[in-house]
Each structure stands twice: as C-alpha cells, then as structure tokens.
Amino acid sequence: MTDSADSLKALYQSIVLEHSRSPHNTGRLEEPSTSATGHNPLCGDKITVFVQADGDSLTALKFEATACAICTASASIMTETVDNRSRGAASETIRRTLDAFEHQRNLDDLPGDMAAFAEVCRYPSRVKCATLPWQTLHVALNENTTTTTTE
C-alpha cells in the first residue's frame, strides 16, 4: 500500500468514521447555561455547542452540526472528553487540544480519542475541520452566546 493510501486510512480511521456516522450527544439543550455557534467559511460548515453547567462543573454538552466527517467526529469525541469536568479542567483540555493542532506538537498527548485525529495535521485545509468544535466550545465557555469562525 502506498504512503498516500495509508495516510488516508489513518485520517478516516474507524473510530473517526464511527463517530461521524453515529455522533454522540447531538441535539440541543433546552436551557443551556451557555452556547456558541462556529462557522467554517471555507466550506460552509456550521456547529452549535450547548453547555449545561452546575456551579463549576460541566454537567451536559450537546451539539448540532452541518459538517464533514472530521468535524462531526471531533465534536462527538469532544463532548465525551469534556463532559463532567470542571470549567478549569475543560478549559485546560481545550487549550491543550487547540495548541497541539495549531503547532502540530504533542499530538500523542491529545486527550482521549482525539488522538485519532493526529493525521489531520498532514492536511492543512482540514485541520480547521477538527478544531472548529473545540474553538466553538472555547468561545461558549469564555463569552456569552456568540458566533465564531475558523478564519
């Protein structure tokens, strides 16, 4: 098999495809503590992340997305990774994840199943697909309801 075919298989590995075909935690929260919407103007993708907080603890995360497999799977995995964490721990996880993609470093340390996305760094036009849910969650946790973009 060629490097190229290996790389493609690594990008669309089974865990990514499973999450994209049957994403977890999709839908809206009726009265979220906070929410944010993110756009990728390059492809028209859109994701809204809803967060329920109880004191310092994030008790529920949901998302609605019109997005590609990479973005949808990243969002699905994100909701599982960050759920039930304190705001501080969630923010640290978000920071670490975005830093890893932005600087293409410590990819082995990506939290939970996000490690499956290490290969996306070889696809400059697709990195934003993986990071959009995380950027959107970052905005939701740091500002009131608002809209963000990958640009």
Partner: peptide, 29 residues
C-alpha cells in the same frame, strides 16, 4: 451520507482535483 469536504480529500488522494464548498454562491446553496 457523505460531506463534500470528505469527498474532496479522498478524491485528491486519487489524483482527482475538484472544488468543495459553497463556491462563493451561498444564496444558491
């Protein structure tokens, strides 16, 4: 069952260059 962006990446791996997205015509989309 597929998203254009994923099709574009997989096609590129096979030497096929297409455009994916809204093509600067969002009202059409």
């Amino acid at each position: 069952g597929t998203h254009p962006h994923d099709l574009g990446t997989i096609l590129d791996h096979q030497g096929v260059a297409i455009r994916t997205g809204h093509h600067c015509a969002m009202p059409v989309m």
